[in-house]
């Protein structure tokens, strides 16, 4: 497991206490899991994805990640409609382990992009992780 200072937590993302990250790209929000989450889970072997067109509220469970001996639910950082899922993960779930920021999971058309402001910045998220320790 990585020490906290070894974690890669980009400045330009926002985070949730459930260890998802989100990034606004034009009109859509891209969502994935943080370096901390992928490191804790270990080798990811399967990703259960929602379907394009599904709608969720912020905080809803939208899928699961499986490692060999654990299952972890995914929670949406922001409410909206799924516009894309990363289908590459079906055959290569390890993309999330290799680079959790390149290995995005879903894209959402947010109900209100302003909701992103309610999420944590890098420092805020780091604070949560330090509290977790």
């Amino acid at each position: 497991m990585k020490e906290l200072e070894e974690l890669n937590l980009p400045e330009d993302l926002v985070y949730t206490k459930d260890h998802e990250w989100a990034r606004l790209e034009g009109e859509v929000v891209v969502v994935g899991i943080s370096d901390y989450a992928q490191d804790q889970l270990g080798d990811i072997v399967f990703v259960e994805l929602p379907e394009v067109g599904d709608s969720f509220e912020a905080g809803d469970e939208f899928g699961t990640l499986e490692s060999v001996k654990a299952v972890s639910e995914l929670y949406l950082p922001i409410g909206g409609e799924i516009t894309a899922v990363n289908e590459e993960l079906d055959d290569a779930p390890e993309l999330i382990n290799q680079d959790p920021y390149d290995g995005w999971i879903v894209k959402i058309k947010p109900n209100d992009p302003g909701d992103l402001d309610k999420l944590l910045d890098r420092n805020g998220y780091m604070g949560i992780l330090k509290g977790d320790e």
Partner: peptide, 12 residues
């Protein structure tokens, strides 16, 4: 594929 099973997924 033990994540289907009770010792990991419990009630699910």
């Amino acid at each position: 594929l033990a994540t289907r099973e009770q010792h990991i997924r419990r009630e699910k």
